[in-house]
């Protein structure tokens, strides 16, 4: 819409999104206690309520439960497998229900609108039993530009 596209060898892939379009869902394997232990270490979130049954019980819970940020990281994977990451302008989530151990989350993203070169996506993570655990939104720049990733 502005300048001529001059495609170089490292041109970011064109993002083709259309209102109403659903991105391919990302179905995850069951969340194990090992998943939570690894994510605690790798994410820096050592809150024992996610990894230590004793701590969970001392807070009145029956069991540990997954980090909300694990679901959000999965959704991030879905987004970045479909759009170049540097096109993502914003990414937000509300954690609306706990993800229990052994749950099987599926991440979904739908394009709701495209305005002024920005695609708005609605995001959702749901479990096999139909529970929605996370709702979210993302904005993706869909203007065509020849800028390469990274160096900005």
């Amino acid at each position: 819409m502005t300048e001529q596209l001059t495609a170089g060898p490292r041109t970011a892939p064109t993002v083709r999104l259309e209102p109403g379009q659903e991105l391919p869902a990302l179905a995850l394997p069951p969340i194990t206690r090992t998943t939570l232990a690894l994510f605690a270490g790798a994410s820096g979130d050592h809150n024992p309520i996610h990894i230590d049954l004793d701590a969970a019980r001392s807070a009145g819970l029956d069991d540990v439960f997954a980090h909300g940020m694990l679901s959000m990281a999965y959704l991030g994977r879905l987004l970045t497998s479909y759009v170049p990451q540097q096109r993502i302008r914003s990414f937000g989530a509300r954690f609306v229900a706990i993800t229990p151990v052994h749950a099987r989350p599926t991440c979904r993203a739908t394009v709701v609108s495209i305005r002024n070169g920005i695609a708005a996506l609605e995001l959702r993570v749901e479990l096999a039993d139909g529970t929605t655990t996370m709702t979210g939104h993302a904005e993706v720049d869909v203007t065509i530009d020849p800028h390469t990733d990274g160096g900005e």
Partner: peptide, 14 residues
């Protein structure tokens, strides 16, 4: 008390 804390929302701008 950390045990009483839940993550409600998280937003990023890039």
């Amino acid at each position: 008390d950390l045990r009483h804390v839940l993550h409600g929302e998280q937003h990023f701008e890039y």
